[in-house]
Write a protein that binds this DNA or RNA. Structure first.
Lengths: 346, 346
DNA sequence: GTGAAAGCGCTAACAG
DNA sequence: CTGTTAGCGCTTTCAC
C-alpha cells in the first residue's frame, strides 16, 4: 500500500477519489507514489465498502444473433464512457432463462441490469419489481415499474410497408408474425400492426394468408417460411421480414427458387445489421436506432445507480428510426448516411 | 445475515462453501434459513477475502465481427459450467488497445484474461509476463510465457487449398494476405504458408500477383480486394479468402460483376461462421474448432486460477479443423456433421 | 487539510 | 462438528 511508501496516510483515498480538499503538493506526492509503486486500488474492497461493483449486466437472448452482438458492442462502448464494465448474460430462447434474470440469481456482481427480453410479456409485470436497477429494452412489456427504452415499432413498420407500397408493391407478405397470435405487445404484433395500418391507408386488402410465423427469428426460419410461402401462394410481390436475419434467410430461399429480387419480389428487413450491406442483393431495412438505444440505456442505468433515497418514477424513451433502402427494394445506396443519429425523444 | 436468523452462527459459511464436516441436520436448518431469508452472499466481500472475483475477462478485437461474437458465446457458455461470469473487453483495431490489455489497467475485476490478439507479435513477448493468468488465443505469438490455444493454421489452410485443387482449380487467388509481408507468425502468414505448401505439392506455380492484402478482415475489404482482382487479373478460377467475412464480401463483389460462383470462380472462407450457410451461394469454409478452443481456454484458465505456488510451465493446445464444403465450391451439404467435435490435442 | 479508527460481509485458523 | 476471532483493503465519519 502506497500509504507508508508515499509519505502521508489515508489521504491516498482522498486523492484517488478526487476529494477536492487536498493540498496540491500533497496530491502531487501521492500521485507520484502511486505511479512509482504501480498501485491499483483493490476493487473488491472498494466494492465491499461502497456497495457498488462498477459493473453493469447486459441480458440478451444470444450473442450470435447479429443484432445482439451489435447491441452489446454499442452498450460496452457506452458503458466505457462511465468506466463501467459489462457482464453479458445469454438468456437463451426460453422464458425460464429470462425469468432467471429477474430472480436476481444471475448477474449478481453487477450494479444493475440492462435487459432485452424476447419472451416475457405483460403478464410478467409483477416480476419486474426487483431490488436492483433494471432498464428494459424492446417493447414486450409496457407500463411496468422500470425504465424502458423502446422503438417506434408500429410507426417504423408502417413506414417500411409504405416504402414497399411506394415502389409499387401490392401483395406484401410478412415473415415472423403469427396472424392469429393474441399477443398484443411483442415486436412481432406491433410491427404487424404498423404493416396493417399502411395497407389500410393505401386502400390495400389485408390477407392473413400472407402472414407467416417464423420463430425464433433466425436465418433458417426465414428461409423455411419463404420456401413454404413460395410453394403455397406464389402470388406476392414483396416480403417484409420482421428482422434482418429472417430477411437474409428469405433472400437465400428466393435465390434457391430462382426468384429475382427485387424484380419479382422485393424484400425489406428490420434492424439494419452490418451484414445487410453485403448480402446479394443487399438488404433494405428499418434502422431502429440501436446506437441511441444503447447510449440512453446506459445513461439511464447510471442515473439509477447514482440515485439515493428519492426514487424517480420510471421513464420511457423512444428511439428514432429510418428506412434504409438498398437493392432488395430496388435502390443502390442507403437513403440516408448511416451516421444520421440524433438525440433520443422521451 | 442468516446467522442470527437461522439458529447457528458462522456455520453458514461452511454450508455455503460445501465444507464437508457439517451435520446433515444443521446443514438442513441453515439451508432452510437461507431460503427463507432469500439470503445471498455478498460477492464483493467474498472477493475481498478470497482474492478472487469469480469473473474472467475476454479481450477480443470487436464483438461485431461474427467470429468473435460466436467465440464470445462459446466462452460464456463454457465459463458458465464453472459458475464464472465473463467480462468482455473490445480492444479495437489497434496495437495500443491490445497492449492496454497486458498493462493490467483494463479488465481489472477479473481473475484472469482470455485474450485473442490481432496485432501483437513475437516482438511483444516481453509484455506477456503479466501478474495475472493469461490465456492466449490465435497464433500470433509463439513460445511466450503463457498458455496458448491455437489452430492448425498451416495444415488447415493447406487442406482448404487442396480442396480447391481437388475440384479442379489451378489459379487460386488469396485475399487477406500481403505477399511481401515479413510477419511470419500472424494468421495470414501461416495460412498463406499452408496455401503455398498445397500448391507446391500439386506442382502448381505460385503467383504473388494473386495474393491480395485486405485489412482488417471485414466484408467491405473483401469486396474491395475482389473488385481489384477482377479488374487487374481476371484469370483466376478460385479465391481462398482468409476469413469468412472477407469471403462474404468477395461473393458480393463477384455477384456485382456477374461472375458465377462456383462455375467461374470458387470461393473458400475460413472460420465457419453461422452466416456461411445462408449466403447466396452458401460459403465453403475451414472450421477452425472454435467450440473446442473456447472450452479448452476456459479449462486452462480455471486451472491457472486454482493454481497455488507451484506454477506449471505454459501449455500449448491445437484445435482440430475440418473443411466444410458448400455451394461456393460446388457442394450442396456440409461434408461433415457440424457437431463432429472431438477432444483437443495438446 | 490530514490522521485515527471503525466496519462493510466474508473466510480461514484455531479452539473447544 | 461448531463457535470465536481476526483481518482482506477500502471509504467514511470524526477529531485534530
Amino acid at each position: 500500500m502506497a500509504r507508508a511508501a508515499g509519505v502521508s496516510i489515508k489521504t491516498v483515498s482522498n486523492v484517488v477519489n478526487d476529494y477536492p480538499y487536498v493540498r496540491a503538493s500533497t496530491r502531487e506526492r501521492v500521485l507520484q507514489a502511486i505511479a512509482d509503486l504501480d498501485y491499483h486500488p483493490n476493487l473488491s474492497a472498494r466494492g465491499l465498502r461502497s456497495g457498488k461493483t462498477g459493473v453493469i449486466g447486459l441480458a440478451i437472448p444470444e450473442l450470435r444473433q447479429n443484432y445482439f452482438a451489435e447491441l452489446a458492442d454499442s452498450i460496452i462502448r457506452a458503458a466505457g464512457e462511465y468506466d463501467l464494465d459489462v457482464l453479458i448474460d445469454q438468456t437463451g430462447p426460453t422464458r425460464r432463462g429470462e425469468m432467471a434474470v429477474l430472480s436476481g440469481t444471475r448477474l449478481r456482481r453487477t450494479d444493475g441490469i440492462i435487459f432485452s427480453p424476447e419472451r416475457l410479456g405483460p403478464e410478467d409485470i409483477p416480476l419486474l419489481r426487483v431490488a436492483f436497477p433494471l432498464v428494459l429494452l424492446g417493447e414486450r412489456i409496457f407500463g411496468g415499474p422500470t425504465d424502458h427504452i423502446t422503438m417506434h415499432n408500429v410507426e417504423s413498420a408502417r413506414a417500411g410497408t409504405e416504402h414497399l407500397i411506394g415502389i409499387g408493391r401490392r401483395r406484401i407478405a410478412v415473415i415472423g408474425a403469427d396472424p392469429h397470435s393474441t399477443d398484443a405487445t411483442g415486436s412481432a404484433s406491433l410491427r404487424l400492426r404498423g404493416y396493417r395500418a399502411a395497407l389500410a391507408a393505401a386502400g390495400l386488402p389485408y390477407d392473413p394468408a400472407l402472414i407467416r410465423p417464423a420463430a425464433p427469428w433466425h436465418r433458417e426460419n426465414g428461409a423455411a417460411a419463404m420456401r413454404r410461402l413460395l410453394e403455397e401462394r406464389p402470388d406476392f410481390d414483396a416480403a417484409f421480414t420482421l428482422n434482418d436475419t429472417l430477411g437474409l434467410g428469405a433472400l437465400r430461399a428466393l435465390g434457391e427458387a430462382g426468384v429475382h429480387v427485387p424484380d419479382d419480389v422485393a424484400v425489406l428487413g428490420f434492424d439494419n445489421i452490418d451484414e445487410d450491406r453485403f448480402s446479394v442483393p443487399s438488404l433494405s431495412s428499418v434502422e431502429p436506432g440501436r446506437e441511441q438505444i444503447a447510449k440512453v440505456a446506459v445513461d439511464v442505468m447510471v442515473a439509477r445507480i447514482k440515485e439515493k433515497g428519492d426514487v424517480q418514477p420510471p421513464r420511457q424513451f423512444l428511439a428514432d428510426y429510418r428506412i434504409v433502402a438498398r437493392e432488395s427494394t430496388g435502390f443502390r445506396e442507403p437513403s440516408l448516411p448511416s451516421d444520421a443519429i440524433g438525440p433520443l425523444r422521451e
